[in-house]
């Protein structure tokens, strides 16, 4: 089966500021990859390019063999780090909105996830706290049967118990034909979930590989490796 995502020498500059330099990676179906790095290292830029929200300055981006565009957006479920939902709707309304927009959206699953995360669907989006809004966005992202899930700054606004529920939810909805690309600072919570990791420093990949192989090679956890690289 072909790779879900292929990046080859991806470059992105904002004016003269190089946000991404020669990023090359491949994500196969059924794999969960983590993009790790400090603030400003280019994680969000990378994810936005794959989501089709930003254009690369150079290099190649292929999502299921296609350049990002209308067709890939139908295959990609994007969970952004900031709120992107229409504020005037209730949660119930948002679910209907998504259902209209996306063919692969499963409203029953969305409602089930919301219930699991303890969110009342009658509430208005404006009334939600930051953490609750993130849980909502996560539910919406997972309720799509996408080939690629992009999760920017996953779990960061959510309390520890909800984080565990969120991770369980991700595992429960795991589909061997789909893949996840996750950026996060919460390495301890997430590292057991990751097949592969990419360490991004100032826009460049300085280390990448299979998480278990890296544990053997470096004789430490992914968090330990992170601390070593970025301290």
């Amino acid at each position: 089966m072909e790779a879900i995502l292929k990046l080859h020498n991806l470059n992105k500059s904002y004016a003269s500021f190089p946000a991404l330099k020669n990023v090359t990676l491949e994500l196969k179906p059924g794999r969960i990859m983590g993009i790790l790095g400090p603030n400003g290292s280019g994680k969000t830029t990378l994810i936005k390019i794959v989501a089709g929200l930003l254009r690369p300055s150079g290099g190649e981006v292929l999502v299921c063999g296609m350049a990002p565009g209308v067709q890939t957006k139908a295959l990609v479920s994007y969970l952004p780090d900031v709120n992107h939902l229409p504020n005037w709707l209730t949660i119930h309304g948002i679910i209907q909105y998504f259902n209209t927009f996306y063919e692969d959206f499963d409203p029953d699953l969305a409602f089930a996830l919301l219930e699991r995360l303890g969110i009342d669907q009658r509430r208005k989006v404006t009334a939600l706290s930051k953490g609750t809004r993130e849980k909502l966005q996560l539910s919406l992202a997972l309720a799509r049967k996408a080939r690629l899930y992009l999760m920017d700054e996953l779990l960061e606004g959510i309390d520890p118990i909800a984080r565990t529920v969120a991770i369980d939810t991700i595992l429960e909805n795991y589909n061997p034909e789909g893949s996840l690309l996750i950026s996060t600072h919460l390495i301890t919570d997430v590292e057991k979930l990751l097949d592969e990791v990419v360490f991004l420093k100032e826009g460049e990949i300085i280390l990448s590989g299979n998480t278990e192989d890296l544990r053997v090679e470096k004789k430490r956890s992914i968090e330990g490796i992170y601390k070593e690289i970025f301290s």
Partner: peptide
């Protein structure tokens, strides 16, 4: 594999 991964909270490939 799926059930085990959920129980242990680890990646199914692991």
């Amino acid at each position: 594999v799926r059930d085990m991964s959920k129980q242990l909270e680890v990646n199914p490939n692991t």
